[in-house]
Structures are given as structure tokens and as C-alpha cells.
């Protein structure tokens, strides 16, 4: 989306590295300890990004997750080429790098026995950007929740709409929100979990539309990019600007939940769904 300048790239630790350097405080942490602590820094509580699969493993009951719409992938319908090459090549490279076909994994499963439909964005795939395939999967999953009357949980981690698909990407904001609007009509709960980072067109569509909006500590959540705003207003922004804590203070999210407590938190909230 306009003004969002550069997706924050977080390098995932390589399998063989012994030490992880925390992006939050710079501390060196044993890789085994880092993993044990769910990719959260034991020193400063920095919540590093997770893959969709890691999040499924963390949150869903063992063997309960069934993937849906997994055969959907992006196409380079505009023949988009920039300085670095073609979108087509980028798609292939990202598929290879991440082992998934789009920036979101969709499916249904159980959280402590509660059945839900879910869409989990994966920041490794083109910065979690919202492309046509992403939008299709998120809508189809919403329709699945609608048809079966199941709560819908979307985990967002995205730099925003995918530029390489032009207005087709922009329209995914309307497409995904149309799915959310149908859930609203049928009183089906939609929980939005905004993870680091959730910005641009994703924040300005389904991610902000949760009946509950929740987040993890320190997650960056915003519409316009920080640098663009600084250029517009000509001054430095406060450090906590566009963090989960800032959004909580301004009334846009319901709660900030520690990663290790997320499963219990979601199950507890789902236990109140009385339909």
C-alpha cells in the first residue's frame, strides 16, 4: 500500500547456528534456548516472527489441523518487471524458500478442543503481502467458517497489499472484507491476531475488523509507513508509535498476549462463544 516503504525483513535462524542474536536487544541466546522459548528473547521479551507451520504447532491440538485451499498460488498476471527482475521469478523463488505456495496458510483445527477456521499469514512469502491468491484463500476460509458456523481466526503478518499485482491486490481488501461482512451478518465471531508487522492494506482491511483484535508484545501495527509520516510532518515520531502497546492505549486492540499464553487465551475466549 502507498507509503509503506520497506518490509521489515527478519532473518530466520539457520538450523546449524548455535547462537541467535536478538533483534530487540542484541543479546546472544543459545539456539536451543531460543527455540524452547518459542522464538521469544528471554532477555528482553522480543517476539521474533514465526512461520505459519510453527504457529500451527504452537496453537492447535496435536494432529487436529487440516489444511484447506492449499493448491492456490500467485500468478504474474500483469507481467510485472522491476529493476530486480520479474514477479514470476520472485514467486518461484519464494515458493522454494518458504515451502508454501502463498503468503497465507488456511485450514481448520482445534484449539483445546474448540473448532475454528483459520488463516495464518507467513511473512517469509513475499513479506506476507496480500495478493490475489492470499485474498482468495482468506475469503474461501471465511466462506468455510460461514457455511459451518465456526469461529474464524486470522493471524496477520504482512507488509500490506502486493504491489506486483497492482489494483488486483488493492481489491483483495474489498474481497476479504466482503467475507468478514458475511460473518458479521450471521453473528459468527471473527478474531484478528495482529502480529509483527501488520501494516498498509492488511491493517486497513480484515486485520482491523476483528470482533476481538489482539496482538503480541511490541508488534508493529500501522497504516502508513513510519518514514513517510516523518517526512510528511517533518518531525521524529515517538518510539512506541505504531506498536501494539500504542494501539492498545488508543483503543484499537483488546489485548496484548504473550506468545506462550496465546493458546490458553484463545481457548478461553472461544469458551464464551455460546451459540
Amino acid at each position: 500500500m502507498s507509503w509503506y516503504t520497506k518490509a521489515i525483513e527478519e532473518k530466520k535462524p539457520q538450523k546449524k547456528t548455535l547462537w541467535i542474536k536478538c533483534r530487540g536487544c542484541g543479546a546472544h541466546i543459545w539456539a536451543s534456548e531460543w527455540k524452547q522459548n518459542l522464538s521469544v528473547c528471554p532477555e528482553c521479551n522480543y517476539h521474533c516472527s514465526m512461520t505459519a507451520q510453527e504457529r500451527i504447532n504452537l496453537l492447535f491440538d496435536k494432529d487436529s489441523f487440516h489444511e484447506l485451499f492449499e493448491n492456490i498460488s500467485p500468478v504474474d498476471s500483469l507481467n510485472f518487471n522491476d529493476l530486480k527482475g520479474s514477479y514470476k521469478d520472485k514467486i518461484e523463488a519464494n515458493k522454494k524458500k518458504s515451502g508454501i505456495l502463498e503468503s497465507v496458510v488456511t485450514g481448520h483445527g482445534k484449539i483445546k478442543g474448540f473448532s475454528v477456521v483459520t488463516a495464518i499469514m507467513d511473512f517469509r512469502f513475499l513479506g506476507g503481502s496480500l495478493g490475489s491468491g492470499t485474498g482468495e484463500k482468506i475469503l474461501q476460509a471465511a466462506n468455510f467458517a460461514y457455511d459451518y458456523g465456526l469461529p474464524y481466526i486470522i493471524f496477520s503478518a504482512s507488509g500490506g497489499a502486493r504491489m506486483q499485482e497492482g489494483v488486483l491486490s488493492l481489491m483483495q481488501m474489498a474481497k476479504t472484507c466482503a467475507g468478514v461482512a458475511r460473518l458479521n451478518k450471521k453473528n459468527i465471531p471473527f478474531i484478528s491476531v495482529l502480529l509483527n508487522p501488520t501494516t498498509g492494506g492488511v491493517t486497513a482491511s480484515y486485520a482491523m475488523m476483528g470482533d476481538l483484535n489482539i496482538s503480541e508484545p511490541g508488534a508493529v501495527i500501522g497504516f502508513a509507513g513510519r518514514r513517510v509520516i516523518e517526512q510528511t510532518i517533518g518531525e521524529k515520531l515517538p518510539d512506541d508509535f505504531q506498536t501494539a502497546e500504542y494501539l492498545l492505549e488508543h483503543g484499537f486492540i483488546d489485548a496484548i498476549v504473550q506468545r506462550k499464553e496465546m493458546r490458553d487465551y484463545l481457548a478461553n475466549v472461544l469458551s464464551y462463544y455460546n451459540r
Partner: peptide, 23 residues
């Protein structure tokens, strides 16, 4: 793209319009 727009929920206001316009 300004500080007060973000503070008052630029993303939320656009998201809500897009969602509610569907109905």
C-alpha cells in the same frame, strides 16, 4: 499519512468502510 490520522485509526476507519459497504 500523518500522526493524528494513525492515532485516530486511519486503518480502522478505512477497513470499517470497506466492510460495511458490502452490506
Amino acid at each position: 499519512p500523518g500522526l493524528e490520522a494513525e492515532e485516530r485509526g486511519q486503518a480502522e476507519s478505512i477497513a470499517r468502510n470497506i466492510t460495511e459497504m458490502a452490506n
